[in-house]
Simulated scan of single mutants.
Amino acid sequence: MSYSQFNKVLLIPFVLSIIYHLDNVGAKVGFHKNYVVSYGYDHVSLLDNGRKVQLSMDMASGSGFRSKKSYSSGFFEMKIKLPEQQSPGLVSTFYLTSNGLEGQDTENHDEIDFEFLGTDGPPFILQTNIFANDNGGREQRLKLWFDPTKDFHNYAILWNQAQIVLFVDNMPIRVYKNNNSFGVRYPSMPMLLEGSIWNGESWASGGRKIDWSKAPFQLQYEGFKINGCESENKECYSNTFWWNIGEYLDLTPHDKRVYKYVRKNYMYYDYCYDRGEFFNECHLK
């Protein structure tokens, strides 16, 4: 079955399910409602009356933003368009992290990552990673089935008491179950949302150096609405939030078919086959 055929058969029910719950997901929420610039202030531009933000990177600096509030569960998403020019060595991100919160240990922390590794053309590489009161090491990499530099695509994180699911254009591409009862760590600290562009030439893109003659590299985001439980709320796992109930506590049979298809056809690296220290959690998932 081709991707286009698979898309028509399996994705429509899933998309309808997600859209039903996302309150005005398509509405263009302004950047300043939920986010602030965190660094590289002169490398950040607001576009479309603040409904888009552009992060730039050159030899002087990268740039980034973060949410005004921290969260302890939710469904978080962002529409992203990657730099159009060749960009080996760059890393563009959208992620949740407990780093930056007062009193938080920056070495052992919680984090859920989308990291786009710069490239000079297809394949376009997306790396995901999960930190659970540690330093991560749970990398997975897949080759995107579209060109993320040509248009905006939707990237989302579901985080509740049962599972973490990462989505690309409403397709589940990664699942991390809460197996805390079996001694497996699970992200539970309050986390901020962040986006950034930075120099990763020491490891990203096979260690290739950034071609600064093509700078500035420009990364755009839109869709700044947040569906999340603010961390001061002590009931962030309660069923008063739609992402904590029903189909969001496990993958549906439909979701599992989509997930299996993505892993089989697009994933090319999984830490579970490479990192012995994670044998327990990989065996359980």
Rank of each mutant, 00 (worst) to 15 (best):
I18K: 07
D270G: 11
I173A: 06
S2C: 10
Q220P: 06
R208N: 11
M1S: 08
F241D: 10
M189T: 08
V184K: 11
I125P: 02
K260M: 01
F279R: 05
F131R: 00
R174C: 03
G200D: 03
I80A: 11
V37A: 09
D48E: 08
E107G: 06
D23C: 07
F94C: 05
M59P: 00
G276S: 12
L10C: 12
K209C: 01
A156D: 02
L166P: 00
S45W: 12
C229D: 03
E111Q: 15
W159F: 07
Y261M: 07
F6G: 07
L10D: 02
E77P: 00
Q127E: 10
T128Y: 03
D274C: 02
V184D: 10
G103L: 04
Q220L: 15
E277H: 12
P123N: 03
R66W: 01
L166I: 04
H32F: 14
N133A: 09
G26T: 13
N170R: 12
E232G: 11
Y20R: 14
W145S: 06
S17R: 11
K260S: 13
Q86R: 13
D250C: 05
F224C: 05
H283Y: 14
E235A: 13
D120M: 08
R275Q: 15
D255T: 03
Y266R: 08
V15F: 07
S202C: 01
W243R: 04
E115I: 03
R51Q: 15
R51H: 13
E281L: 04
H153E: 01
W159Y: 08
N170W: 15
S188H: 14
N179D: 15
H283W: 14
I210A: 03
W212D: 06
K33N: 15
V25M: 15
P88M: 05
G74C: 10
P187M: 12
I197R: 03
